[in-house]
């Protein structure tokens, strides 16, 4: 019988500062015990509790893809006690990962469909996982057109800049990168908020599923845009965030009505959310 509260011990392998304000870092972890990587079998959209002995745990979306072997990656914003401590940790340090937790994007349902990915700010982590997963040669044939709209405040605030460049050059994914504003004369992508750029670049909801992640304002402003494109609520997929502790649907704080975001979510369709209290 596995103890769901016991984290797998991991070692920090690499720390990458992602953004110009240095508040977002990506941590690459390797499992210390052989066999744990296999037990930590996940799907894009799931999250895990990053567990630092003596400090506590934080629920963070998994940024790596299950098609990437030998490590797991998480991008963490520096906010509270645990994330601030984590930002000061270095390669070689030992901590824990508890999970994978929650549900995932509706991969079975997405097969054979066009996929529209919309991300704002630093809520691009499980979307990175999803893109890497879909672009894997084994998986790419399962999906039709893949279109991505991703925006941040400035060019320096975009995550995964090298990968964005690489995806830009591929012909099996259509990238629309945007920033709210920039002084950079060499900026060759879009300038504008994510919702209006989506309205310009995405022209059809036909046979498509939209996955939207971002701060509350982006989620809110995306609704009229997606409605205008004729996305039905069942085909708009969102990922939610809440304060969490147990991560397994017991401890009582992350619920929206009878649904626990940690266990029944974090992925919900807009149709599901319409039936739930707006907490």
């Amino acid at each position: 019988m596995e103890n769901p509260y016991l984290p797998y011990p991991v070692r920090i392998d690499e720390v990458i500062t992602e953004t110009e304000d240095k508040n977002l870092k990506t941590f690459k972890f390797v499992f210390i015990n052989p066999g744990d990587e296999e037990k930590f079998s996940y799907r894009p959209g799931q999250f895990a509790e990053l567990s630092i002995a003596g400090k506590g745990e934080i629920p963070i979306g998994i940024a790596s893809s299950p098609t990437e072997k030998g490590f797991v990656k998480f991008t963490v914003n520096k906010v509270g006690l645990v994330s601030t401590y984590l930002h000061n940790m270095r390669p070689g340090n030992v901590m824990g990962i508890r999970g994978p937790l929650g549900n995932w994007y509706p991969w079975e349902e997405m097969e054979g469909k066009n996929v529209v990915i919309v991300g704002g700010g630093f809520a691009f982590t499980t979307l990175r996982s999803s893109i890497v997963y879909m672009l894997h040669p084994e998986n790419r044939p399962k999906f039709k057109d893949i279109k991505v709209v991703y925006g941040a405040r400035t060019p320096g605030m975009l995550l995964y800049k090298d990968e964005l460049k690489e995806w830009e050059q591929r012909d099996d994914i259509e990238m629309h990168i945007t920033v709210d504003g920039t002084n950079d004369p060499d900026w060759k992508y879009n300038v504008g908020y994510v919702p209006p750029i989506t309205e310009q670049k995405i022209t059809s909801a036909e046979n498509a599923i939209a996955i939207v992640c971002g701060p509350p304002i982006v989620i809110k402003m995306m609704q009229p845009v997606l409605a205008k494109l004729n996305f039905p609520p069942e085909r708009i997929i969102l990922s939610l965030e809440k304060r969490m502790k147990c991560g397994i649907g017991i401890c009582g704080r992350c619920n929206l009505g009878d649904q626990y975001v940690c266990k029944d979510g974090p992925v919900f369709s807009m149709a599901q959310l319409k039936e739930l209290p707006p907490e």
Binding site: N3, Y5, S51, A53, G54, M95, G96
Partner: peptide
């Protein structure tokens, strides 16, 4: 769970039920 609160110790910072 308990752990040895010493990052330098063998097995330190790892949780045991």
């Amino acid at each position: 769970a308990r752990f040895k609160n010493d990052p330098k110790a063998e097995g330190g910072m790892i949780m045991h039920p």
